[in-house]
Amino acid sequence: MSEYQENSVVESIERLADALYRLTLHAPCIAAAAKPGQFIMAACGHSLDPLLRRPFSIHQAATSGTIQLLFKVIGRGTNLLSELRPGQSLSLLGPLGHGFQLPPSGPLCLIGGGIGIAPLFFLATKWLQQPRPPESCVVLLGSRTAEEIRQLATDFSELGCLVGTATDDGSLGHHGLVSDLLPPFLSDLKQVCTCGPTAMMAAIAGLCRDTAVPCETSLESHMACGLGACLGCAIPGADGHYKHVCKHGPVFNAEEVAWSR
């Protein structure tokens, strides 16, 4: 495993919804090394304030040397990212952490809630590099409103996935929780991969445990280094020991995580 401190160049930035952006960066070293579920630390801004890099999942990595980030503006760092324009540079550190472990055969179900959808697109792309039917890659997307997932649902469909959606306001797909969509598929699944709010992932981990379906979950934690050096990103593990999201994760088998903390 090798990580790089790479000065990437912005190729494009698209606004997909109100506060949702997709950023395409030329970062050949990171693009070549990246695996689905891994993340980068981005130095948003060029001053000492904000000081720390921000972690973002790798949304897509292409052999052409580009990577994509999908991000939601929630504070100062992400706001600075949204102001980037083509040609400008962004210092990245990555690829970092452990990505998704995949079974030899499907079907697979990818479940993303909100901005947690970000790493799943890269995962689906890699999974579908081998010719597989849509049923082998079920994608369930949840968000507050249709606006946040309309474009992404289309992208997953075009990739060749079977897509289901759920929204809190009922403006697209199922009116309710995305985890409500999982049970009908469970009996056939070889594995579930999920990223999103902790409550959503805990619910999904529970459903998977009850039916003995392996479940991989991508977690978040506040980070300073992303390298396993600061020990700031600890979360409680099921074995009673702390785990470091940047090094042991961000993707954990659901059984490794203490969900009720």
Binding site: L48, D49, P50, L51, L52, S221, H222, M223, A224, C230, L231, G232, C233, A234, I235, P236, H241, Y242
Partner: peptide, 19 residues
Amino acid sequence: PGNPPPRIVETSCGMLNAI
């Protein structure tokens, strides 16, 4: 084992840690 999370928080031109 260290402290429970959150263990770090960014502040103006700095950070607080309670590892």
